[in-house]
Design a protein around this nucleic acid. Structure first.
Lengths: 226, 226
DNA sequence: AGTATCGAGTTTGTATACAAGTTGTATTTC
DNA sequence: GAAATACAACTTGTATACAAACTCGATACT
């Protein structure tokens, strides 16, 4: 069980940006802090690489997958299509068991109180939709998508203004509506809701990519940037 | 380089069905025959598992991913959508370099003389389209799809009748037409051609899933089934 | 006779030692 | 003083030995 704990820890750390995109992962240090030897650690890194969390280059170690501009462009271009396709299948294949886990995850999402926790529950929510869609071929893309989407939405859930809090509430309501659409096997409705949900999320991504401009006073600027 | 050779060998063996779906892969035996120790072999298996070639269960070793009926249903349901999406992006993002490799792979496809070689070149052809589409989020699904599609199309390229040979010729012509559509940045055209191409392939899959009925004589039937 | 339990044998998982490769620094040369 | 090369330190890759888990057959019990 030690190995899976290590896997989950690294995965969570990458998703919540404690391991920043592009940063190098030191084998020795990770072995030390998780108390495993290099063999299982390396197997974990291989798995993480297979799922798109890290990049593995020969003789050069592991680095957290980057999130540069072309990647973000790709995400915005591809995400709605994949989410919509998954939603359609989920509505078609919805099972009582699937709906139940979905409701459970969603209640966890509603009760979350830190931005990171919200982002993680949102991740699980959409992963659960993928599981219900039950398509071994779409799942890999969905998972890949969710990695970057979750990383970018860290800012989304860090609500600072009343407007932002309202937006989050809106996203949560959309989750509920989506569950209802799945439950009544309404693919078209599920797709529409999913696209609305995506549109909402897009704004958060834009805030992540283009943060508010720094103050014009240079000394202030340096202080804020740290 | 030994490790990547091992990876390619296993990958090719799985795609051409020399390792049948569902069969177990013995670590010791593979180490023996490829002359590597278990550590790199296991890393290769991890990678293959990440890409969907094998299933890895704890304390239970690696098995070649199966191709049971639900999976095939999923494939038929999902494939056209993914292929179409990839084709659209490929047409939009087509680059001279991408077109060049596509033409190269296609000439290899035309000159292939065994069913396996044809299936492999077809695999590479569609992988090259995926590369040109340049979407890190669609690629994983495309690759997953191609694994099973290639395994199922082994029968497709094993032409026994004049009709079957004609069908293969038709598929090859479609490849050429698709390249042309990419080259002139015509997404709609590329999508249409891709869907036609898929329709053709579907018949081959049906022949794979539902082989011609066995003779009615029971003794004959048992002999053939072995 | 059927089922449950124990144990030998086999297979998988982990740790560690060693080999090979890469990076960065220092020294030498132009 | 700048550039190139060689060396040293460090990081990654591989082999092997050992530990843990599972399988399957034999024996005992219901």
């Amino acid at each position: 069980m030690k190995k899976s704990a290590l896997f989950d820890a690294l995965r969570a750390g990458i998703l919540d940006l404690s391991f920043p995109p592009g940063s190098a992962l030191d084998e020795a240090a990770l072995c030390e802090s998780y108390g495993v030897s290099r063999t299982p650690l390396r197997e974990v890194l291989q798995r993480l690489s297979g799922e798109g969390y890290v990049m593995l280059e020969a003789h050069r170690g592991a680095t957290v997958s980057s999130m540069d501009l072309p990647v973000i462009r790709s995400l915005i271009q591809t995400a709605p299509m994949i989410y919509a396709a998954v939603a359609r299948l989920a509505a078609e294949n919805a099972s009582p068991a699937g709906i139940k886990t979905l409701k459970h995850v969603q209640s966890g999402f509603r009760n979350a109180d830190t931005p990171t926790e919200m982002a993680m529950h949102n991740h699980r929510f959409h992963e659960a939709i993928g599981a219900m869609a039950d398509s071994p071929y779409l799942m890999p893309s969905l998972k890949r998508l969710l990695i970057d989407h979750t990383r970018m939405s860290q800012r989304f859930y860090d609500a600072r203004t009343a407007t932002e809090r309202k937006t989050i509430q809106q996203a949560s309501d959309q989750h509920d509506a989506m569950i209802a659409a799945f439950e009544e096997h309404a693919p078209a409705k599920a797709v529409d809701l999913t696209l609305d949900h995506w549109a909402l999320s897009r704004d958060g991504i834009e805030r992540f990519v283009m943060p508010p401009p720094l103050p014009l006073d240079p000394t202030q600027e340096i202080k804020d940037a740290v």
